[in-house]
Design a protein around this nucleic acid. Structure first.
Lengths: 377, 377
DNA sequence: GACAATAAGTTCACAAAATGAACCAATCAA
DNA sequence: TTGATTGGTTCATTTTGTGAACTTATTGTC
């Protein structure tokens, strides 16, 4: 599909945005002459197009950008039920939406996807001919080939070769990935982290997820377990966790844990926002819970910073209100536990996730394979 | 010096040991034809040589290995005073030793190195003509070009362009690196981690160091601060640390801290070995101190495993006795705080360091630049 | 002991990818 | 208007790699 230099070019543009031929040549380390040919071919093939003309001294430069409609991807999130399925272009724009019928049987899911494919592509002839891949996001462990779900508690799966099932049913190249890792890739390709080579994402939801992008690539770890901070021990000897240990971050700071603590304290809050509201009224228990959870997350993030020195931390949160007390506590806990030399040196950005995030993340896994090649060395 | 394919070949051999031309071709992704030419050139240049002949079915294969004497490196450790300076070959073998006169003035050090160079090379004519670089290990932060010491408390330095000073004084290419990071590279090139693409090293000494190798390359972090676990908060609200925070790992588990705790408990132990001995006699305070320190290290390592899922953890320790109670406690603490699914999945190897380790680590930084190119993307 | 079977490694004509140098193109500044 | 400046193209040449046929050195088998 693409050779090494072409891939490199796509990667650079996808990171840095539109660039002139000369800048691209410099960024990739090729001569202007070579660049000229590569650009021409990719323009002819409809992958690149000329956008802005930038005037300065000398001949103006013509910026080249990826054509968003040069490839399309299907993204499916198995985190919700029914599972949303989206059609996305190369910019992460969602072109069409659909829902898969409820099921946890891998083969049924694969067939449902194959069945839904013509449906979601209907009315998008371009996308039909340029469909480049399917991505699936799920909660659980995935092997390094992004093909098999090694284990998923939520789905009750063990060593399920889902990618192969879908590939066979649909005839389209398919990759699966853990939810947090998919969102990390999505932010790298489509989002706020495009030009950040090293960053980590921390996702707060019913559970806590985390993933690292290192040197511009998703770092999966030796067993695909990089980023499993949910079960890092934050409170030695603390509350028992469903994993069998005690004091895991998950037992203190996941939304499930927060709600449980609120219930145990006799508060009638069913969400973090409600708890925030209660805290703003001065309810001591609510404040204490928010402090405990926020401090735990902050401590975990501080460990992340000390350990890996990322260029950015991106916190995604389902239930909003990170601007309130909870967010403040997290920020303070990070600052308090990071080497003073580094305090404030690692930007922490937050993002409220909507239900599209997972499906778009899934699509980005397919886009990553299209643009940069498989995530293996 | 070397082109891309040649570099790749050197990297593969340095990772996997001697390989046949056919295996090399497959590993690098080149044709046998291309491999044939590359091997011939590198053999002619004295970089590779044929070693063993392996008999199987068909024509036997001839293994190619790096010639250790194809390049030599100088390694200097500024962690000790006087600073040891070694001459090493491409296998990390130490060919000659010397000591630099005491100084903390960068220019004086640079001149001392230049002055000592002919001395240490004397009697090694091969090394003189094939000296490929100088590496310096120091305690502190180093910039991503491995040229400037951004800050070193131990040396009292701030933004010292040491590499440039040495380069000018000696005329030899020079790179500097943090001590733990240098040892990590050394273990990757010369040591136990040769064939492990992802691993972390934890060095226990007067202070606590840590470094990560990811995808076969040293991962330095966004500000060169990856691996600074010494100041991760392990005991919130614990003892004040010289860094300004409280409860840092450094205040609980560094040799300095352990000795201080022993002193405070009224024990006359001046080393971990002595403390181990005391503990084996049943002295409760000694046992408590070892437990506290070991549990802290174990907890930190468990965070490392959960966060990054390395293929191996290598613990280097200055004061031996990791086989005793301390080592056991560390191992237990790791197992207890790691997701049960992963328990025992991450091998923890230990290595007692002698005083050569830092200097050899320093030399390995130069060797890395020779073999694999600069540690920047 | 001859001879297939097998696999390693080489040779060579050719193709692909990149380069350097010269050149054309489009602007600004004087 | 003209020169300086920078972006981009062309083309002959060099570098790098390939595929297929071939040579080489062994084991296994009849």
């Amino acid at each position: 599909m693409f050779n090494t230099s072409q891939r490199e070019l796509l990667r650079v543009i996808s990171e840095s945005g539109p660039l002139s031929r000369t800048d691209l040549a410099a960024a990739i380390g090729l001569s202007k002459a070579a660049m000229s040919g590569i650009a021409r071919e990719l323009i002819d093939r409809g992958v690149l197009h000329e956008t802005e003309t930038v005037y300065g001294q000398g001949r103006p430069s013509v910026l080249l950008d990826l054509k968003p409609e040069c490839a399309f991807f299907i993204g499916i999130s198995l985190l919700e039920d029914p599972a949303p399925m989206i059609l996305s272009d190369l910019n992460g724009n969602i072109i069409a939406r659909q829902q898969l019928p409820h099921s946890r049987d891998p083969k049924v899911i694969a067939n449902a996807i194959a069945y839904g494919l013509p449906e979601i592509l209907k009315g998008h002839p371009q996308a039909s001919s340029k469909l480049a891949g399917i991505g699936v996001a799920l909660s659980g462990f995935v092997d390094e080939k992004q093909a098999t779900c090694v284990q998923s508690t939520l789905l009750g799966w063990q060593d399920v070769p889902l990618a192969e099932f879908i590939r066979q049913a649909s005839g389209v190249d398919t990759f699966i990935e853990n939810d947090a890792k998919a969102v990390a890739v999505s932010e790298k390709l489509f989002g706020i982290a495009r030009d950040v080579p090293n960053f980590s994402i921390v996702s707060l939801g019913d559970g806590i997820g985390c993933a690292h992008v290192i040197d511009g690539r998703l770092y999966r770890g030796n067993h695909g377990g990089a980023g499993e901070i949910a079960h890092a021990t934050i409170e030695p000897g603390g509350a028992p966790c469903r994993c069998g240990k005690r004091g895991c971050l998950d037992t203190i700071a996941s939304m499930t844990a927060i709600k449980e603590m609120a219930r145990a304290a006799g508060l009638k809050c069913t969400s973090l926002s409600e708890l925030e509201e209660e805290a703003s009224l001065g309810t001591a228990e609510a404040i204490a819970i928010i402090h405990k959870a926020g401090a735990a997350i902050g401590l975990a993030i501080s460990h992340l910073i000390q350990m890996n020195d990322p260029g950015m931390i991106l916190v995604t949160h389902v239930e909003g209100s990170f601007e309130g007390l909870f967010g403040t506590v997290v920020q303070q806990a990070v600052e308090a536990n990071v080497l003073p030399r580094y305090a404030g040196q690692t930007p922490i950005r937050t993002r409220r996730v909507d239900s599209d995030v997972w499906a778009r993340g899934a699509a980005s896994i397919a886009a990553h394979n299209f643009l940069i090649g498989p995530n293996i060395s």
